[in-house]
Amino acid sequence: MKFMLIMRSTDAAKKEYEKADFEKIINAMGAYNESLIKAGVLLSGDGLADDLSDAFVVDFNTETPLVTDGPYGETHELFSGFWILEVGSKEEAIEWATRCPLGPGSKLEVRRVTDMSDFAEFADNEYLKKEERWREELEAK
């Protein structure tokens, strides 16, 4: 089972972070990531830049998708990074998530990543199409 740990931080929490010893934060996060790698559960992960000058939003409400700079409200919790873990159970995902070295103002939203069992129907359809093609080819020979 794959889970995505989505990190969200409030602006207030980000300001607190700026005051904190940054090297300490990097070390704690590094140790956490290392423990994930050593356990063989980390598939991928990245942080998202705080600088929003390269960020944008695409809104599909209009006929032509609308690209804007926002909205990122003051109190909005910014999506600031993610991990994808492959684990044996939801409980294991909870164990890993609660070990993440985050503080007040930060949250992890954890969601299961879909796998092929979620698309069993789709797989069937693909197969049926394939089998049809295969039969046609045999008959054509």
């Binding site: 356990a39 044996g88 159970s89 409980e91 294991e92 909870i94 164990e95 890993w96």
Partner: peptide, 8 residues
Amino acid sequence: TVDAVWRI
């Protein structure tokens, strides 16, 4: 939970 801890 114990199983998950054991796993890790």
